[in-house]
């Protein structure tokens, strides 16, 4: 068992910066995204809240709440779910308008951004669906650009249809499973999140729980769930 709390043992997660970040994950894994979001929130001031535009129940509140080092942090993730491409598009539009009119947010997350547009209903042609997706991507990129907000996106597949998402990204983080644990790779860094256990691939909830737990001493959350002022040096980045 690793001892936690010493600097060397702290797993390294890439820090999210302003701009559009496309996270390419294997098999639609959502735990790495959840870990990035929680980590980012732990590093920012207690208010305001992140915005998560959800599809296909990627938010997985059950695992998210197990992953979170404290319940109050979950009050700082605001979720709205879309079930049709129309609802998704309207959500993106309304969020952009709200932030433009002064609503603050430290982070916007839109997993599987292309997902709903791929299976249009209500007689929406695939051409129209593709146009809607392109405009949704543009809106999200606009939020990142105008308000200096990190916007985290994932896509369900790497193909022609989702290419607009890749084109809009300022940076790409690739998350791959290795036999030592997940590896985050981008132009600026390459990080192995520390291997828990004996070198087996660990993408399970328990694994991410321990990653965040291991980082928690730095964030030093007290029992009331309050985070003291930051005095934290962060990973390699």
């Amino acid at each position: 068992m690793h001892s936690t709390g010493t600097r060397e043992d702290v797993p390294e997660l890439p820090q999210l910066t302003a701009g559009v970040t496309l996270v390419e994950v294997d098999e639609q894994a959502i735990a790495p995204i959840q870990a990035l979001v929680l980590d980012h929130l732990l590093l920012t001031e207690a208010t305001p809240t992140a915005r998560w535009i959800d599809v296909f129940d990627h938010i997985q509140t059950r695992s998210l709440s197990k992953l979170a080092p404290s319940r109050p942090i979950l009050d700082r993730i605001q979720v709205a779910r879309a079930f049709t491409p129309f609802q998704h598009f309207a959500l993106v539009e309304d969020l952009a308008a709200e932030i433009a009119s002064g609503g603050e947010t430290p982070l916007v997350v839109a997993p599987a951004l292309d997902g709903l547009y791929r299976e249009p209903d209500g007689n929406l042609s695939s051409q129209q669906a593709s146009t809607l997706l392109v405009r949704a991507v543009a809106k999200l990129a606009g939020i990142a650009r105008r308000h200096d907000v990190p916007v985290v996106l994932t896509r369900t597949r790497d193909d022609e249809f989702s290419a607009p998402i890749a084109r809009a990204a300022n940076s790409v983080i690739e998350v791959t499973d290795t036999r030592y644990g997940p590896r985050f790779a981008s132009d600026e860094f390459e990080t192995l999140v520390y291997p828990v256990g004996n070198g087996m691939i660990q993408t399970t909830l328990a694994f991410w729980q321990r990653v965040l737990e291991a980082r928690q001493p730095i964030h030093a959350i007290d029992s009331s769930g309050h985070e003291p002022t930051m005095e934290v040096a962060h990973g390699t980045n």
Binding site: T49, I59, S65, L74, D75, I77, A80, A90, D94
Partner: peptide
């Protein structure tokens, strides 16, 4: 086009 409102996790 009406979507649900944001709520906390």
């Amino acid at each position: 086009w009406r979507h649900e409102q944001f709520k906390s996790a």
